[in-house]
């Protein structure tokens, strides 16, 4: 068990980070903290994928000095997945931040609990 952890310590770290991110996303009330939690989760998966694609002693998968032999480079596919994932993470973060601006304009707070309380008070007045 301990030996397995030692040889896969990057993957183990990635999963712990994933847990931290998930807990932050679900339990924090503040929207900005929720977004931070999402980013930690996404980054932990990138760490996991990058670790899976890495082969010790080889270079980045960009052709250098005209060498086209596969043996000199790491697996490029996880890197490509990570790049695509970063684009997705950026767009989701941007969209969430835009939503935060909108909701701050309307309610004057980013705390989801307070927003819910305000909504309930409004409904009981009706």
């Amino acid at each position: 068990m301990l030996e397995a952890l030692r040889s896969n310590y990057i993957e183990a770290t990635a999963l712990i980070l994933f847990g931290i991110g998930l807990a932050t996303l679900l339990w924090e009330k503040n929207l900005i903290k929720k977004i931070i939690g999402f980013n930690i989760m996404e980054t932990s998966i990138f760490l996991f994928l990058t670790a899976k694609g890495y082969i010790a002693g080889r270079g980045a998968p960009i052709i250098t000095d005209g060498i086209t032999d596969v043996e000199y480079y790491i697996n490029p596919l996880p890197s490509a997945i990570v790049l695509t994932g970063i684009v997705i993470a950026v767009s989701i973060t941007a969209f969430m931040l835009a939503l935060c601006l909108k909701i701050y304009d309307i309610y004057g707070t980013l705390d989801m609990d307070k927003i819910t309380v305000m909504d309930m008070a409004e409904r009981s007045e009706d």
Binding site: F18, G21, L22, L25, L26, L31, K34, F38, M41, E42, I45, F48, L49, K52, I81, G85, I92, F95, M96, L99, K102, I103, I106, Y107, M112, I115, D119
Partner: peptide
């Protein structure tokens, strides 16, 4: 206000799903 709140709820739940999906792909 209602739709934006609903959107945030939807996003927060959906993101959890997406991340689990990506982890599973990894």
């Amino acid at each position: 206000g209602e739709t934006i709140k609903a959107t945030i709820k939807y996003m927060c739940m959906s993101i959890v799903g997406s991340m689990l999906f990506l982890l599973s792909i990894a």
